[in-house]
């Protein structure tokens, strides 16, 4: 399972036949191959940055001014793959793509913006959950006690669950 799977005609067909970035995002998120690639990157985190950068660089060679960027479906899919991965490379790709406003790539920045939005929502809700603790003094009449310790959840666990 490598990133080149994102170049498939099936993924391209999804992106080329649907009209809104929301619809593309929703359909891509439900695909099993996208989830498998995300899992593969997560399991090989050490090599992920190099693999992502190389994949992006190789495709950008085909970017020609005033011609539609042929790898836009793959970039949409890559954005969805990286949505929940706890890696600086994922954050970099999504942040940079979401602010790109060029005529050659009209859809993928919008999909990336949706991914980034959800990524931040997950992070915020998990951060809140992470610090939720039980009442230290449930009853003023009872002796001070901590009836249970808050569950410790690492950020890696959160993303593992989300992925």
């Amino acid at each position: 399972m490598t990133l080149t799977e994102l170049d498939s005609d099936e993924i391209a067909q999804t992106v080329f036949t649907l009209a809104t970035p929301n619809a593309i995002y929703a359909i891509l998120r439900a695909r099993s191959d996208i989830a498998a690639i995300r899992r593969h990157l997560f399991d090989n985190a050490g090599e992920a940055r190099r693999a992502i950068e190389e994949y992006v660089r190789e495709r950008l060679i085909d970017l020609k001014p005033k011609t539609y960027f042929p790898h836009e479906p793959a970039f949409c899919a890559l954005a969805v793959v990286l949505e929940t991965l706890p890696m600086p490379a994922a954050e970099d790709f999504l942040s940079e793509l979401s602010v790109l406003k060029i005529a050659e790539m009209p859809i993928s920045p919008r999909v990336a913006a949706l991914c980034l939005q959800r990524r931040r929502e997950i992070l915020i809700s998990n951060t809140v959950a992470e610090f939720k603790v039980g009442p230290i003094q449930p009853d003023a009449s009872s002796p001070r006690c901590i009836d249970r310790l808050p569950m410790v959840t690492t950020r890696t666990d959160i993303f593992k669950a989300a992925a």
Binding site: V56, R57, K64, A89, E96, I102, A103, E104
Partner: peptide, 10 residues
Amino acid sequence: MLEMARLVGT
């Protein structure tokens, strides 16, 4: 990562 796209794109 996408610097080239910013430079080449219109």
